[in-house]
């Protein structure tokens, strides 16, 4: 009888160990992606690259680890169905460009931030949260990465910076937009934003 309990305990222990090690693997993957993108932004070889080329290189690094569509689809929510297939693809691409532009330009002109990942918490079925702290210009920011296991593997679906969820913020804006506007209007607005120089070289976080 004791042997039975011992073996059962062992099986569950092994399964738990496998889960914990899978979560740690996600942490390592995330840290790798963050380091790789910061390397692109802050490396001497890329220092003189035009903004768009630098953004393309950062995008390459991000997309080699994660599917950015997941986070954008999550932010769009049910409004996705209000757009035609062509509009859906265009919105995905434009939002991706906008987010990358804000990310790269927001960090430029500053010292390289140091990012360290903390605890991994299982928040639900196939969902985890990874805590992180970013020290930028002597200030510490708390950032939470939310991941979910999708068909394509573990993907980031939300980033919460200082209590503000990026997905929730965009979901709110897109919900408000679709109360009066259409998919075509959204595309026009996104194109307008990308063409404008509101986020210029002087804009910092």
């Amino acid at each position: 009888m004791i042997s039975f309990f011992f073996k059962t305990f062992l099986v569950f222990g092994l399964l738990l160990g496998a889960t914990v090690s899978a979560q740690e693997a996600q942490k390592e993957k995330l840290q790798g992606m963050i380091d790789a993108t910061l390397d692109v932004i802050y490396s001497d070889t890329h220092a003189r690259l035009p903004a768009k080329e630098k953004q393309a290189k950062v995008r390459e690094k991000l997309e080699s680890s994660y599917d950015l569509d997941v986070m954008i689809r999550y932010a769009i929510g049910k409004n996705w169905r209000r757009m035609s297939e062509g509009e859906q693809l265009e919105v995905l691409e434009l939002v991706k460009q906008l987010v990358l532009k804000a990310y790269v330009i927001g960090l430029e002109g500053k010292d390289r931030p140091s990012v360290s990942l903390g605890e991994v918490t299982e928040t639900g079925k196939s969902r985890i949260e990874i805590e992180s702290t970013m020290v930028l210009d002597t200030k510490t920011y708390y950032i939470l990465y939310r991941l979910r296991q999708m068909e394509s593997g573990w993907q980031i679906y939300d980033i919460v910076a200082e209590n503000v969820s990026v997905s929730s913020n965009y979901r709110g804006q897109i919900d408000d937009h679709f109360r009066k506007g259409s998919g075509a209007d959204l595309i026009a607005r996104l194109e307008d934003l990308l063409a404008k120089d509101e986020i210029n070289e002087d804009t910092k976080i």
């Binding site: 804000a102 804006q173 959204l186 607005r189 986020i199 976080i205």
Partner: peptide, 15 residues
């Protein structure tokens, strides 16, 4: 930064 990356800056600020 908020204005430059927002589809609707009012809504973004509110949220």
């Amino acid at each position: 930064k908020l204005k430059g990356s927002s589809i609707d800056p009012y809504s973004s600020l509110k949220n």
